[in-house]
Design a protein around this nucleic acid. Structure first.
Length: 584
RNA sequence: GGUCCCGUAGCUCAGUUGGAUAGAGCGCAAGAUUCCUAAUCUUGAGGCCACAGGUUCAAAUCCUGUCGGGAUCACCA
């Protein structure tokens, strides 16, 4: 249970009661009431803004209103004191017991602690990665992949039903290029001199096995054949092979998406026609000529009539072309159809995770979804900024193993999956991120992954020592729930416990704002709280976790740090990182 | 030129969807250390939150404009 929410709800109940009694007018903006931890801990545990938010619409003095609420809140058993501060804040100080109980809750609920049913099982479609199937994942793709996956986890934790999806761009001209590149390798596999690989082809050696497989399958059948005889089939085989490769890459990162949606199927199955027809019925399609873009014109710009979608009616800057001059559909048309398909599958909440280079694409996507759903569905597009690879602060070039880029596997091989995943979430998605190969593997506070893991490992170690010191006591989660939590009354212990109590709130906020990085930052802060407490035990041995001869006290403290470790564990799980028992 | 993102401590960045005296880490200065081990902790110095207006009880946060940095810009994908 989220303790902040609890008191926020309670406040709202009082207000409603007051409205019913006629003490307050109807129609107050109750949704603006928040119960949050105050920035300054000396202000108490929970700050409620109700009086300030409601004073004006209620036509009351904020402090008078606050006084009424305070009188009610004071009656709560868990509240030690409630006071009015500043312009009308209501500051609650909870009894220690209210916090200490959280420890027991964590142990009882285990990984479920921090979860909620906020999402009421609403379906969310989360599309991420979606790289062109023309080669293995490279570093640039990792961030979006990790971001999307962690976001999916967070959303699930608060009760959304998330579908993790990958849009396979297997229809464009880049696939023809892929097929031709594969053909080149096929020729070579057959022992023919193919000369130099033409400009613009995919040079990576990951196409070698594809060439060989094609030789296995077709022998020399297509060696002298015209392109139109083999192109389609090579496209098909090469894409399948690339998707196989990409799935393998994703698995290395620990990512599993359940839907792989093919653009080609959209073309072949008439999905695009259907979506366009749908828009046409709404009167949102017309033939027209676009204004030339402002500023510098592209060299080959010319006015031409096109099939256009009225994107401007839904917030876009210009209307967007749906057909090329040869009559075939544009990429955007396919994308409209794809999002239409998501709507047909019942997704009112859609999230696309894209690279920052797609920034200019966001408005038209949102416009399309808005238009097709009559504003019923929401599309959120999260853009992930660049990752700059560095080593010791200098731009880093790795040996290029497959073609002309650094692959995701290169990075994971070098530093490990957990490090990659965690570091990718130590920055907001829309801020660029430096990935320094030295820093991320360094064992120091500088490196958040290490810092958090270290705290977790310390708990594990203490637990083992406690078991050895008290062989007659049990330290499993159930036994620990029976501990006397009121013994945890030192300020620094309470500080750790209060930090633990923030977890449900953090999860909720990360989920609602679609910002999984908040989890990573929270875990770091939480770990800091633990390390701090640990070191107090160095100064003052009475604050150590294991106190010889004091079984009850030791049990309570072990319960506290085990609860701490559970939070770290479930937080890391959300990020897709394995918590470590030891650091060596 | 249009659009989107960014501008917070010397550096790298958080900032609880508008809250009270703006926070961490690195670096700098001083100190501590037998539970995981100087891998950690404590204390200190360091800020016109780019700038100017506006909205209100309250703005780093929302709106407008200016300046600076990045991305992107008709049929590509």
């Amino acid at each position: 249970m989220n303790i902040f929410k609890e008191y926020g709800q309670a406040t709202k109940l009082f207000i409603r009661a007051m409205v019913e009694k006629g003490d307050l007018p109807e129609g107050l903006p109750l949704e603006r009431i928040s119960a949050e931890p105050p920035r300054d801990p000396s202000h108490g545990d929970i700050a409620i803004n109700a009086a300030m938010v409601l004073a004006k619409p209620a036509g009351m003095n904020p402090r008078d209103l606050a006084q009424k609420i305070v009188t009610e809140l004071e009656k709560f058993e868990g509240v030690e004191k409630a006071e009015i501060a500043g312009p009308g804040f209501i500051n609650l100080t909870l009894r220690n017991k209210s916090w200490q109980t959280q420890v027991k809750l964590v142990l009882a609920e285990g990984e479920g602690y921090g979860g909620s049913s906020l999402g009421v099982r609403e379906k969310v479609n989360l599309e991420y990665v979606s790289t062109n199937p023309t080669g293995p994942l490279h570093v640039g793709h990792v961030r979006g992949a990790v971001f999307g996956d962690a976001l999916a986890n967070v959303l699930e934790k608060v009760g959304y039903e998330v579908t993790r999806e990958y849009y396979v761009n297997d229809a464009g001209s880049q696939i023809d290029t892929l097929a031709r590149s594969a053909y080149h390798r096929y020729g070579e596999a057959c022992g023919k001199d193919m000369g130099e690989l033409a400009e613009g082809m995919y040079p990576g050696d990951y196409l070698w096995p594809v060439g060989h497989a094609l030789k296995e399958e077709f022998g020399e059948k297509y060696l002298e054949a015209e392109e139109d005889q083999w192109l389609a089939i090579f496209r098909d085989r090469a894409t399948a092979a690339m998707m196989e490769l990409i799935r393998g890459d994703l698995e290395v990162l620990g990512i599993k998406q359940e839907v792989f949606f093919s653009e080609t199927k959209l073309h072949e199955g008439g999905g695009i026609d259907r979506a366009i027809e749908f828009l046409e019925k709404k009167g949102l399609i017309y033939e027209g000529v676009l204004e030339p873009p402002k500023g510098k014109l592209p060299d080959d710009w010319e006015a031409r009539p096109q099939t256009l979608f009225k994107a401007t009616e839904f917030g876009d800057d210009v209307d967007r072309a749906l057909k090329k001059s040869d009559g075939s559909y544009t990429y955007f048309a396919a994308d409209i159809a794809y999002h239409y398909d998501k709507l047909e599958r019942g997704f009112k909440q859609q999230i696309d995770v894209l690279g920052a280079d797609h920034g200019g694409y966001v408005k038209r996507l949102k416009a399309a979804v808005k238009a097709m759903s009559d504003g019923e569905a929401v599309l959120d597009v999260r853009l992930c900024q660049m990752v700059r690879l560095t080593k010791n602060g200098k731009p880093y070039k790795m040996s290029k193993r497959s073609g002309d880029f650094i692959t995701m596997r290169d990075v994971v091989d070098e530093v490990g999956r957990d490090v990659v995943r965690f570091i990718m979430l130590t920055r907001k998605n829309d801020a660029p991120l430096d990935f320094d190969f030295d820093k991320v593997t360094e064992q120091s506070k500088d490196n958040p992954v290490f810092y958090v893991q270290y705290a977790h490992a310390r708990v594990h170690s203490v637990l083992a020592k406690a078991k050895a010191a008290f062989c007659n006591e049990k330290f499993d989660d159930y036994s620990l729930q029976q501990a006397d939590f009121e013994l945890l009354d030192d300020d620094s212990e309470l500080a750790l416990i209060k930090a633990i109590g923030q977890w449900p709130r953090v999860v909720e906020q990360a989920a609602l704002s679609h910002e999984p990085h908040r989890i990573a930052f929270y875990l770091y802060d939480l770990a800091a709280e633990f390390h701090s407490l640990w070191n107090k035990g160095n100064d003052n041995t009475s604050l150590r976790f294991i106190i010889e001869g004091e079984a009850e006290l030791t049990k309570a403290r072990i319960a506290m740090i085990v609860a701490f470790a559970r939070i770290i564990g479930s937080g890391l799980k959300v990020l897709g990182v394995e918590p470590r028992q030891e650091m060596h």
